[in-house]
Amino acid sequence: MEKTIDLTLKVWRQRDRKAKGQFETYNVKGISTDSSFLEMLDVLNEQLINEGKEPVVFDHDCREGICGMCSLYINGHPHGPDSAITTCQLHMRKFKNGDTITIEPWRSAGFPVIRDLMVDRTAYDQIIAAGGYTSINVGGAQDANAVLIPKTDADEAMDAASCIGCGACVAACKNGSAMLFVSAKVSQLALLPQGRVEAARRARAMVAKMDELGFGNCTNTGACAAECPKSVSLSNIARLNREFIKAKLQD
């Protein structure tokens, strides 16, 4: 019943941030089409270790599509050719026997390569640190049901909040823009009364940090939303623009 395929892999190998990287070509055989893409890379690594070579370094953790750790630019798509999933949920049945697969790291000035396919995404943390929160301390909260929130607002906030911070939006964007990521957080909190209080301050601070970190300018190509594993909507970017412009006009 189990179907297996043989593949040629072109994998980006880069020693560290400053080193020059290049593609290496590997062959893997007998990959079960039921296995995930990362399991296929596990097989490759096992093979490399057995040959006494250093395995390919890539980020991964939960392997169920929620932690946002896995990345990989596969055949021209962040998280591979399937839609609305992360690399760890990409299964080998999406590929054909004999295919050549090109695997690259996220390429963006904001995400420097650490080793091979592993990149540094701490810029995202810095953007959140700039304002992606409600400024409340533990202990001061009122009863959870004290403020009514329309279901539609809560649902829309949830859709924005489903961002996993993987960086696919930046990786997909020809401008290396982080607007979808920033707008998802700004939207989530702007839609909820709890976050509304400091919406202007948040939009200002997060955009300023995003710009400071060298992410590009959004030109609304929509590649980010098209490649987002959680289908975060482009309309969040319009909301961020609105929040930001409003904030600046108030200054």
Partner: peptide, 9 residues
């Protein structure tokens, strides 16, 4: 912002 290396594919 795109960085120095370009995507091959």
């Amino acid at each position: 912002a795109r960085g120095t290396d370009r995507y091959a594919v």
